[in-house]
Amino acid sequence: MENTEVGEYLADSKGMTLYYFENDEPKKSNCSGECLGNWPAFFAKDFNVPYGFDKKDFGTITREDINAKQVTYKGYPLYYFAKDQQEGDVNGQGVKDAWYIIAKDTEFEK
């Protein structure tokens, strides 16, 4: 998908925006309980990687808290934002200075 404010970004097959949590660690989610209610985990068994992204950058973890799978990008778990209601919504960008959209040029600090 593309947005004038954030440029090209990662979304699921229905156009729902995908985010990462700055407080996560590679292959480990630090979002659980109420957090997970606001930021549902993204999982898809088979998915096409959009142009500009590399398939090898995607993986899967099994969450310890709910024993469910979650897709990762460069090791970081991917999430939806509960307040995104329709295709193209990017309401989660920058929330609490910890939630960000995944773009082609996203770099992780850790």
Rank of each mutant, 00 (worst) to 15 (best):
Q85N: 07
E5I: 12
V71K: 08
D97I: 03
A68C: 15
K69D: 14
N30K: 03
P40E: 01
V90R: 11
D84V: 04
D105P: 00
E5Y: 14
G88Y: 14
M16T: 09
A103E: 06
V6K: 08
W99K: 10
N38Q: 05
F108E: 03
V90M: 10
F43Y: 15
E8G: 08
A103I: 06
E5S: 14
P50C: 08
A41D: 05
G52I: 03
F47A: 07
C31W: 11
G7L: 00
T17L: 12
G52P: 11
N30C: 00
N67I: 13
L10M: 07
D24E: 09
F81N: 14
N30W: 02
N3A: 10
Y76D: 00
S32K: 15
S29Y: 05
E64I: 02
F42R: 05
Q86N: 05
P40Y: 02
G37E: 08
V95R: 08
A103G: 10
K69T: 12
I66Q: 10
L10D: 07
M1W: 11
Y73E: 11
K104N: 13
E2H: 01
N30R: 04
G7E: 01
A44E: 14
P77M: 03
K69A: 15
Y76N: 06
I102E: 15
T72G: 03
L78A: 06
G88F: 15
G37R: 13
K55V: 04
N30F: 01
I61Y: 06
A41N: 12
V49A: 08
V49N: 10
E2S: 02
V6F: 09
P26I: 03
D89G: 08
A98M: 02
D89K: 07
F21R: 13
E34S: 14
E87L: 06
N67A: 15
G37C: 07
L36R: 10
K27V: 02
G33I: 01
N38L: 03
W99R: 12
A98Q: 06
W99N: 11
P50H: 04
G7Q: 02
V95D: 01
V6L: 05
V49Y: 08
Q86C: 01
N23R: 09
K56T: 11
W39L: 00
G94C: 14
G75C: 01
L78C: 04
V95Q: 06
Y19H: 04
P40W: 00
N30I: 00
A103D: 02
A103S: 11
L78D: 12
